[in-house]
């Protein structure tokens, strides 16, 4: 199993957000995590990637056989965990090109490889830009600075393509996207799917899952998964809304 989250409890400022979360992800799988707002979906992404301020009070995150809860964010990233941010950060003064070259070389150093030659790097940039329909001008600009919502999300998928993660988490990648941008982003993700990686797609709406078709759908409510199923569950949710799940949980 690539990722195995066991009975995870996470608090922010003493307030428990994840309350016994369990999830197993195998290589080659796409898992969708759905659920109403405020149920802990983004907290899950932050806990897996090691963000400060998210206290893991109990439970384990086993990734490639090891508990990663004590590792720093950069080490987790270099181990192959990637987060496509819900709100990508603007970083004025740092060009995307320099950013990607630095990130790629950090990963290569982690793997004991020498820095990527400039020519190879630029070729790779060109190739991956096409994947998400990024105009070449964009990469000379500062990271996310002045980007539209759609450009920011495309840029996230572009970075994912560059870094080739094993475990990618897409946090609300569909938010703020029109249908054309959504298709571009989804096509990018689909092109990267393989037997050697896996995806966790966090989304509020079923819409994205028409394009990134999941193997499993999980519904989160109040800090844990309350229902799991196949891709049909997403369609059922779309028809019945989340109240249907809430009722089931409360009446259980």
């Amino acid at each position: 199993m690539l990722l195995n989250i066991k009975d995870l409890h996470v608090s922010i400022n003493g307030k428990e957000i994840l309350k016994g979360f369990n999830l197993g992800v195998n290589y080659g799988e796409v898992h969708a995590i759905m659920g109403p707002n405020g149920t802990g979906k983004s907290t899950l992404a932050a806990a897996i990637t090691g963000r400060d301020g998210y206290d893991i009070t109990s439970g384990e995150i086993i990734y490639k056989g090891n508990d990663i809860t004590e590792l720093s964010p950069d080490v987790r990233a270099n181990e192959g965990i990637f987060l496509s941010f819900q709100y990508p950060v603007e970083i004025p003064g740092v060009s995307i090109t320099n950013f990607m070259r630095t990130a790629l070389n950090a990963k290569r150093e982690f793997e004991g490889l020498s820095p990527i030659p400039a020519g190879t790097f630029l070729k790779k940039m060109e190739e991956k830009k096409k994947l998400v329909d990024i105009q070449s001008k964009l990469t000379n600009r500062s990271v996310n600075e002045g980007f539209s919502g759609g450009e920011k999300k495309k840029n996230e998928i572009f970075q994912m393509a560059m870094l080739e993660p094993t475990m990618a988490i897409l946090d609300e990648t569909d938010s703020g996207l029109d249908i054309d941008a959504l298709k571009v982003v989804a096509n990018g993700v689909n092109a990267l799917r393989s037997e050697n990686n896996a995806f966790v797609v966090i989304t509020h709406y079923q819409r994205l899952l028409d394009y990134i078709v999941p193997d499993f759908v999980h519904v989160m409510f109040d800090g844990k998964i309350v229902k799991s199923g196949g891709k049909g569950l997403a369609i059922e949710l779309e028809e019945k809304g989340y109240d249907w799940i809430k009722d089931q949980v409360v009446n259980r």
Binding site: A77, V89, F99, T102, F110
Partner: peptide
């Protein structure tokens, strides 16, 4: 900026 720091580190760049 803590958000920017996390963003860079999430891409594998050491602190």
């Amino acid at each position: 900026d803590n958000d920017a720091m996390f963003y860079l580190m999430q891409r594998g760049i050491p602190e």
